[in-house]
C-alpha cells in the first residue's frame, strides 16, 4: 500500500456559522487522479480549495480537523501559504490566462518564485512546461502573442502549463473542462492522464462520465459529507451507498 500524499482526518469547514463540510476523512494517493463528484453545494469545491488554502480568501471560512500534505498540517501556523501553493497548483473552471503573452503566462510562476535564474533557463522551463501541457507545437511560433488569443481549450492547457511550470506535487482542478467543447475536453482529459505520471491530480467535475474516464479514485460528496470513496470502477459500477447510486444514475434520491 502506497502512503497517501494528502490525508484528511475529521475535516470540518464552516462559512461563518454554516457548516459546509462535515467530518471528512479522505486519503489521496500519489500519482493518481482523484475525482470529487457530487451535486452543487455538496462541499467538493470547498474541500478542493481547502487543500491549497484558497479558502483563506474568504474571511468567514474556518477549517478544523487535520488536513496534511506529505505529513505536514496544511493549516499549521508555521506553514507559509505561498510555499504551500507553490507545491499545490490549481487550474480553474474558466480558463483564466493573464492578459499577457503566452510566454509571460508560463514564466510568471517561475519568476515570482525565482526558480529560473538565467534567461535561457527560463526559456527552457517555459518550453518544457508547454511541451508537457501538449501545447508547444501549437504555440511555439507565437509565444509573444497574448494568452487570450488562444482557443478555449488551448487557454485551459496554457493554464495547466502555467501550473506545472513551478513543478508542484499536486494539481487541483476545479471543473477544468466545463467551459470547453467535447474535442477540447478530450485533449485536456488525455493531458490529465499523461500528467498523472509526474503529479497527483485532484479534480472536481460535474461530468460523471469524465470522472469515470480519467480518475482512478472517486469520492462522492453529498450535503457536506463524504458519502463514498473508493476505486472509480467500483463507484461507477457497484456503488455501496444508495445516495451514490441515486446520484450517478440520475435518480431522485
Amino acid at each position: 500500500m502506497v502512503d497517501p500524499i494528502i490525508s484528511a482526518r475529521g475535516v470540518d469547514i464552516f462559512y461563518d456559522t454554516k457548516q459546509a463540510l462535515f467530518d471528512v476523512d479522505l486519503d489521496i494517493l500519489p500519482n493518481k487522479v482523484t475525482a470529487l463528484i457530487g451535486p452543487s453545494g455538496c462541499g467538493k469545491s470547498t474541500f478542493l480549495r481547502a487543500i491549497n488554502r484558497m479558502n483563506d480568501l474568504i474571511p468567514s471560512c474556518r477549517v478544523s480537523g487535520s488536513l496534511t500534505i506529505d505529513g505536514q498540517d496544511i493549516y499549521d501556523p508555521a506553514v507559509d501559504v505561498v510555499a504551500l501553493r507553490a507545491q499545490v497548483g490549481m487550474v480553474f473552471q474558466k480558463p483564466n490566462p493573464f492578459p499577457k503573452s503566452i510566454f509571460e503566462n508560463v514564466a510568471y510562476g517561475l519568476k515570482i518564485h525565482k526558480l529560473s535564474p538565467s534567461k535561457s533557463e527560463l526559456q527552457d522551463r517555459v518550453e518544457w512546461s508547454l511541451q508537457n501541457a501538449g501545447l508547444w507545437n501549437e504555440v511555439s511560433d507565437r509565444l509573444d502573442q497574448p494568452g487570450n488569443s488562444l482557443s478555449g481549450g488551448q487557454q485551459q492547457r496554457l493554464c495547466i502549463a502555467r501550473a506545472i511550470a513551478v513543478q508542484p506535487k499536486v494539481i487541483l482542478m476545479d471543473e477544468p473542462c466545463s467551459a470547453l467543447d467535447p474535442i477540447a475536453t478530450a485533449v485536456v482529459e488525455d493531458l490529465i492522464d499523461s500528467l498523472r505520471k509526474e503529479y497527483t491530480i485532484v479534480i472536481v467535475t460535474h461530468s460523471m462520465q469524465q470522472a469515470a474516464r480519467i480518475s482512478q479514485r472517486t469520492a462522492f460528496f453529498h450535503l457536506g459529507t463524504l458519502v463514498e470513496f473508493g476505486d472509480t470502477k467500483t463507484i461507477f459500477t457497484t456503488p455501496k451507498d444508495e445516495r451514490t447510486q441515486n446520484y450517478i444514475t440520475g435518480r431522485i434520491g
Binding site: 460523471m208 462520465q209 469515470a212 461507477f236 459500477t237 457497484t238 456503488p239 447510486q245 450517478i248 444514475t249 440520475g250
Partner: peptide, 10 residues
C-alpha cells in the same frame, strides 16, 4: 441517449 451508469448500465 442516457449513458447509463451502474445498475442502469447493467
Amino acid at each position: 441517449r442516457r449513458q447509463p451508469l451502474a445498475v442502469d448500465l447493467r
